[in-house]
Simulated scan of single mutants.
Amino acid sequence: MPRGMPHGNSFRKFGGPDKRLHLLKTLVNALIKHERLETTFAKAYETQKYVERLIDITKYGKSNLYCNDMVNFWVPEEAQQNKLFNVLLPRYSEHSRKYTRLAVLTEWTDKDMKSHGKMAVIELKGNPLPPLPVKEGNPHTLQNVLLAAAKQDWDYQRSNVKEN
């Protein structure tokens, strides 16, 4: 079952349809403005779908009526519209999909509210910000130990073949 459809619901509620739409518009605008956001995983995952679709739509150009309607609805501020068309569109002109990156952070606890939240960072690819740290694999897992041993055997066999 896809992550976005638990128990037959096609999308997350986020407090009702009006609040959900307002929240998503705010997150889409903030992501276009700042190019990186830290929020909960659920909000970041939902925002990712809308931002990628919006960038696909902007490829139609400013002269397209559908493109203008969607951009005016999702990005009402003129500064973000200019950034969308003049900065992000040329950056992603060669890309066909996947304009964003979603990195899951460790869980956190708010002592006052006693709530646990799965946090995530969503960013636009190719942004000028410093890169996010990449999670390295554990070298002591069974798979990684076996792969390292196989690589050593392979290197040893290749070096013996070259000597003979």
Rank of each mutant, 00 (worst) to 15 (best):
K43D: 01
E107T: 12
L23H: 02
N160V: 08
G4Q: 14
F85H: 08
T58P: 00
K43P: 03
V121G: 07
Q152E: 15
A30T: 12
M1E: 12
P90Q: 03
V28D: 03
L142C: 03
K13G: 02
E52Y: 06
K162C: 00
Y92R: 03
K151Q: 15
A148S: 15
E107L: 09
L37S: 05
L105F: 03
Y50E: 12
P130R: 13
K33N: 11
L84M: 11
K98C: 11
A148K: 14
M70R: 10
K62M: 08
L147R: 15
Q152R: 15
L27T: 04
V71E: 00
P90E: 09
S63F: 09
N138K: 08
L65Q: 10
S159D: 15
G61D: 09
R12L: 12
F85M: 02
V121D: 07
I32E: 01
G16L: 02
A149R: 08
V28S: 08
R12F: 13
E136T: 14
E52D: 15
A103R: 13
P76D: 05
T47S: 10
E77C: 02
S159C: 00
K114D: 09
Y45M: 12
E94D: 13
M5H: 04
K33W: 05
V51W: 02
A79K: 07
K98Y: 06
L142S: 08
P6D: 09
H95M: 09
N164L: 13
H22W: 07
A42H: 01
D56F: 01
E78R: 08
L105V: 01
F41L: 15
D56T: 13
K62I: 11
V134W: 00
P133D: 05
M70A: 13
A103F: 09
V51T: 06
S159P: 00
K135H: 05
D110N: 15
T40H: 07
G137N: 07
S93H: 07
L84P: 02
N160H: 14
D155S: 09
L24T: 02
D56P: 03
R53W: 11
L54E: 01
N64I: 06
A44S: 09
P131C: 06
G61L: 07
K83N: 04
D112K: 11
F41D: 06
H22L: 12
H116F: 11
L37R: 06
T58H: 04
K19L: 14
I55A: 03
L89W: 05
V104P: 00
Q80C: 10
V51Y: 03
K25N: 02
Q157W: 06
L31C: 04
P6K: 12
H140V: 04
E136A: 15
P133V: 11
P17S: 15
D69R: 14
A149I: 04
A42F: 07
P90I: 07
E94G: 03
I57C: 06
K135S: 05
P17I: 12
K151L: 14
Q152W: 03
Y156R: 15
T109V: 14
R101N: 09
N82H: 08
L88Q: 01
T100V: 07
N82T: 12
D18M: 09
Q157F: 10
V104M: 10
L27M: 15
Q48E: 13
H140K: 09
K114I: 01
F11K: 13
A150Q: 15
E163C: 01
P17W: 05
K25W: 04
K62P: 10
R20L: 10
V145M: 14
N68R: 14
L21F: 11
P139A: 01
I122R: 04
R97S: 15
